[in-house]
Amino acid sequence: MILVPITYKGGVYRHDEIVDLIADLGGYVIQKHMLATEVVLLCLVPRDDIPLIERIGRPLGGEVQPSPLVGTEVAIVTPSLSIHHLPHPACDIAEYVRRLGAKSNMVGLARGYGKRVAQTSAEEREIINEHDCAVFLLGNFEHCIRKKMEALRRGIEVPIILTGKPPTEELRRAVDPPVAGYVGNVGRFMHRTKEADEIARLDAIVAEITRVLDLRREEIAKDPLSASPARLMAVIQDKVPEVLDVTSPTPITVQIAGLRVKLPYAEYADRLRSAEVEEGVTIGKLADVLPSRMRDYILVRIKPSSETDIVV
């Protein structure tokens, strides 16, 4: 059964029927937003059952859209959190990526500015490496991007998508060894993105993130994970119900090959490890349960099946 990411938008009235239908079909609701009279469900559902969800959702005013970024966590890395880079373009991009289903986190570097002094700290690198990919939002000068990327990329193990003002081809030439993705004509700007050409640039960033993450999924598919992250999410919600009381919008953030559980590591890590997925198979056997560098959260990294000899 192939699960595909979709967004369901519809009325609040009888939306529980859609949630139940998705569960019955073997899908998972990753995130649920209630916005006044509208509900937005980010979910993973079986590909063949999308027409069924559309048919049942139509009388309830529901629409189904493919959302390739559902179930991913993306770091939007900006050289600093000053007026020079925020709120535009960093917040605009983080917000746009979020609309397409990704969980985006902004990482404002303490010393990411300046071509000579730019650097990342160990904590920043570790936080970025907890994501599925990192989008680096650099500026307007090719010369500076070339110099800075050498320092900023050091220690980053997740795929990097580089954005900047020079055209994509120039960015590609400027960075050696190459990074996973490039989006040109973005750079630093100080107004809200609302014109058609600006929205097109945001679309280009989303397309590049999607391409890079698809490659990552293909790579993972060669040695499949011991369990799907969405399945482990459902198990954790069932076995550790305290997570349902967490007020964060995503108490459990689903990643391509893991999860971020927003519960204190010291108190809940052992319970998480011993939570049974199936008889005799616990999360501890399928995944590494690690302390996250983000607050005191728990990071679950699912091991490949070649390592555990288990697929559930």
């Binding site: 307007n140 000068f141 090719e142 700007f189 100080m190």
Partner: peptide
């Protein structure tokens, strides 16, 4: 850098208007 000229023209424009 020619690309940066248009970028900084826009930035100056936006900042001074803001």
């Amino acid at each position: 850098e020619a690309g940066a000229v248009s970028a900084y023209t826009d930035i100056a424009n936006d900042v001074l208007l803001d």
